[in-house]
Design a protein around this nucleic acid. Structure first.
Lengths: 343, 343
DNA sequence: AATTCCTCTCAAAGCGCTTTGGATATCCAC
DNA sequence: GTGGATATCCAAAGCGCTTTGAGAGGAATT
């Protein structure tokens, strides 16, 4: 059924060496010969045996994941979406996953074990915190890694892919300010996560440039679930001086926030404006909200796919990729933002 | 650093064959010799090289996952929890995952590709529907599999692990009936999923035994998210004849339902009783609800771990496990259930 | 004492790939 | 036309394990 290298070489009247080299892009093979080989691969459907490659090269062709699981830890919808991106890309290159569930306080040991096992060539990291200890640790273990997000403080020379959270929420705030809003709330992710800090910073910076200060009372931090969006917004609305506009760190939070607004009988886009960050979750599209949401958009799945690409590229030795990427989130204006009331 | 089989054999003054056999439990090796080998393994920390084993045995030592991704598909919190269980167990046995994201209408092709790739020894299946076409398909592909849940209709001879959903909701209903409730609502999962159907059946059966009929108006189906629990409960409460008790198919749904009840100013456990199915999600404990929830409990993570064990056991050829398991969910009475009002 | 039968062990042959260390042929300049 | 590059290709040696087929030794049988 499936041919192997030996048979393929025989068919071509070449040695295994040459065929192998032709396939792996080595220079010492005639261009014409290479074409013949490639053609034969197409015809026979030859697929190299991964187990044999692993053995011969010593590479694992797989990437390690440490899945945060514990009470209160965001085993959330966002993780699944990101994983889908990672998987989508990995499967193309026939890479496997080694998934290690681990409680946060056990993560260090988990990474150590993972690195020692030789089962993975590289690992992926997320949920960055300030001075995240995992970065120096992985460096010390000298196992390749890419982080999703960025730490704040600590070493700066490590590979990451992040979106420019500060910029995103700066842009969003700027829009609101231009619309005449002066009291702007923020329903943010957990306060110890780097992206939350940066989003808050974006808000602060824009306000300051406008000569305004941040009202800490209008900043809420929580796990990014619908429920908390609702509660936070409810609290905001109960204030004597509620914000006229609110930023949400996720469409999931916005979902709850919108509910609270509706319940209060207010109209989104005129009584109060909303901008949410949109991770492009397939099941929660901002354009399908009762009032389509203005968002800062950046696909989480695309980020997963990109990180997989980089991880795999690094392992295969073709790391022409930039080590650090900062994606800019797109500000998409829809109907949930309008002029500040009474202006 | 790490020793290999050859070195280990040398240390012991045995042949590789004997050492290998000792480790893999073959009978033709002296008990004493085996002990010596095991001791040496402990001392040296020998771990067989998986790549070499893969190559020699032709086994992949990995299991395939088809991750359902698409608009509206439950890339939900429950999936992550189940995955954690799978991973927890797999990592112990040094098994890898091949995760294939796939839209539902593309699943067949995905499975086919997965089976043909030789990258996995077995696959796992969930989100069962009535007459689920994937079961005959996987049988035809003759790739080992275990399903989480059970189909309804279609072939019956396939390996599964399910909880007795009918029984669980039968038990729950029974309790409510004994407490004097006659109008019982159900906030269920998606109507096309087998577990939803069975839970509804459990409710129906208990009602009928009590001489009551099911009021279809009191049954809602939806994706299992907080939001929908809220809406469904709200609808129930707006009726002229609201139910005095409601079953929820998930604590996530119950979360929303409870909110709706609180909002209506009703008291849980006296004005209205609630029983939810508890998948034992670490972030959503029924005992931590404002009024601790009565639940039917069965750990999703444990199910994941068990399925991994069976899958792996099957692959390693020690399948003394029962092919079909039906776990009984535990009915745990807490404060959210009380006598029917006015009784 | 010769034969058979276990029990325990081993040497060696793969599994399918990569990679080292040549070979062979071609080409150029001198 | 000879020495030395240069361009192509190959045979064979691993990678670390499992497994076949067989041998050595001792106990049991005749």
């Amino acid at each position: 059924m499936a041919v192997n290298l030996k048979q393929l070489a025989e068919i071509l009247g070449l040695s295994q060496t040459t065929v192998s080299r032709a396939l792996n892009g080595y220079p010492e093979v005639n261009a014409e010969t290479r074409q013949r080989v490639l053609q034969a691969v197409r015809e026979t459907g030859y697929r190299p045996n991964r187990a044999a490659q692993r053995l011969a090269t010593g590479k694992a062709y797989s990437i390690g994941l440490v899945m945060p699981i514990a009470p209160g830890i965001d085993s959330d919808i966002h993780f699944g979406e990101f994983l889908a991106g990672l998987a989508e890309e990995s499967v193309k290159h026939d890479f496997h996953f080694v998934i290690n569930p681990s409680a946060p306080d056990d993560e260090e040991a988990t990474f150590r074990r993972l690195a020692a096992s030789g089962n993975v060539d590289a690992v992926f990291l997320a949920y960055m915190r300030a001075n995240d200890p995992r970065i120096p640790m992985l460096k010390a273990l000298s196992i390749p890694f890419v982080v999703h997000g960025r730490s704040i403080g600590g070493p700066r020379d490590y590979p990451f892919l992040d979106i420019d959270n500060t910029q995103a929420f700066y842009d969003a705030t700027k829009l609101l300010l231009q619309l005449g809003h002066h009291r702007i709330g923020l329903i943010n992710g957990p306060d110890y996560l780097a992206f939350s800090m940066r989003r808050k910073k974006g808000l602060t910076r824009a306000l300051e440039e406008w000569g305004l200060g941040l009202d800490e009372e209008l900043v809420h931090h929580s796990v990014m679930a619908d429920e908390y969006g609702y509660r936070s917004m409810q609290h905001f609305l109960e204030r004597p001086d509620p914000p006229t506009a609110v930023l949400c760190s996720s469409t999931v939070l916005a979902l709850g926030a919108v509910r609270a607004i509706n319940r209060a009988g207010l109209v989104i886009g005129s009584d109060i404006s909303i901008i949410a960050h949109d991770d492009v979750l397939p099941m929660l599209k901002p354009e399908n909200f009762s009032v389509p949401l203005t968002t800062t958009r950046s696909s989480l799945r695309a980020a997963g796919a990109r990180i997989a690409t980089r991880l795999i590229g690094g392992i295969l030795g073709r790391d022409t990729y930039p080590e650090q990427e900062l994606w800019r989130a797109e500000l998409i204006v829809r109907a949930s933002t309008g002029p500040a009331p009474g202006r």
